[in-house]
């Protein structure tokens, strides 16, 4: 019960943040120097047609009035319509956010599966070949820009070897999207019991996920290694060894568990910047994600889309922070919500 109340308190604390985000995103988009009316009036627009477009978009009204309209629409769950995609922003986000989340989560899962064991191994055998391998892998992963890794992987696995499917986004054109439940194609296709589409979606996912995983490998592996090193050299491990516990119990039962806290923190950070920063991967693999959506909206001064994106991201991060806090308490009972 206590925990539930704490959680709702944390959610309540997020409300001023969200209100702030709404105001700031509105003001900032209006402060952008671009003029969407001119941009969208077309090639041969004259003053008159630009004015018509401006009136159509409601941009001829004073800013406070525009803000009131925006808040009123927001209250009914209407984020407005994106000019550059021509769709309601809520629809765009509902389609693109799952695409980005699916890619990012798969990449992070892959990354963790490699980075955490690698970090643990490197920490238990400092300066051995595993440690050096870890260092080399991590350095290469982080020093190669993602679009380069992406194009390289496409060149080798698609163009030269023909192993990977055509890099055409989430599904090749011969498949139909699975009926949307979660928006995650892998999950939706399982729910629909359609294994062919599942395999199709999985195949499309492999290369972009590996690209992103290579990039996110470094912080996770390095953090695991460092946290493990400090955990292994601490007093309670020495005591556990002296008490004659098995190496396995010590390593996974005590050291790793204690080392997980900083790793989870890093994971949260990596997740948030990957979600926003995988624009280049999205472009290379024609992935219809949220990053490229936001960048294109920004370039075109597409107010509704930019505001919707910022708001969605703010909500997502509030949720993410909450999840991480809960994870802390699961891993380390000493940490509670109570202050």
């Amino acid at each position: 019960m206590g925990r539930l109340r704490q959680i709702s308190k944390r959610v309540a604390q997020a409300i001023p943040v969200v209100v702030g985000v709404v105001i700031i995103s509105f003001v900032l988009t209006r402060a952008l120097p671009g003029d969407p009316a001119v941009y969208f009036a077309g090639a041969t627009a004259d003053e008159k047609s630009i004015a018509e477009v401006r009136a159509n978009l409601g941009l001829d009204k004073p800013l406070p009035t525009q803000f009131l309209y925006y808040v009123r629409d927001l209250a009914t769950g209407d984020l407005g319509r994106s000019l550059s995609t021509g769709q309601p922003v809520t629809e765009d986000l509902a389609r693109r956010l799952p695409a980005s989340l699916e890619l990012t989560l798969c990449a992070l899962l892959l990354s963790c599966l490699v980075a955490i064991p690698l970090g643990v191994l490197a920490a238990t055998r400092p300066n051995s070949w595993v440690d050096h391998l870890c260092r080399v892998l991590v350095t290469t992963g982080v020093s190669m820009p993602t679009f380069f890794t992406g194009i390289l992987l496409i060149y080798v696995f698609y163009y030269l070897l023909g192993l990977a499917p055509s890099p055409l986004g989430r599904l090749d054109f011969i498949y139909i999207d699975p009926p949307s439940v979660t928006g995650f194609f892998l999950i939706d296709s399982i729910l629909a019991g359609d294994w062919e589409t599942f395999l199709g979606a999985l195949k499309q996912l492999v290369l972009p996920a590996v690209t992103l995983a290579l990039f996110t490998l470094a912080p996770i592996a390095r953090m695991t290694r460092a946290a493990m090193l400090s955990a292994l050299s601490s007093d309670f491990i020495r005591t556990a060894r002296a008490a004659g516990l098995t190496w396995r119990t010590i390593l996974f039962g005590y050291a790793l568990r204690n080392a997980m806290l900083p790793v989870i923190t890093t994971l949260g950070m990596v997740f948030s910047f990957t979600l926003g920063a995988n624009v280049l991967v999205e472009k290379v693999f024609a992935w219809p994600g949220i990053g490229s959506y936001a960048v294109e909206a920004l370039v075109a001064s597409d107010y509704a889309a930019v505001q919707g994106f910022v708001l969605a991201m703010a909500l997502l991060f509030v949720a993410l922070n909450l999840v991480i806090d809960i994870l802390y308490t699961l891993i380390d009972p000493r940490i509670g919500f109570a202050d």
């Binding site: 194009i151 496409i154 698609y158 055509s166 290379v284 693999f285 024609a286």
Partner: peptide, 18 residues
């Protein structure tokens, strides 16, 4: 199909998949 990256479009046309 919309493929933003020119490098990817080039790989696709060279392979003949589009």
């Amino acid at each position: 199909r919309e493929v933003p990256s020119p490098a990817t479009r080039r790989a696709l046309i060279e392979r003949g998949d589009v």
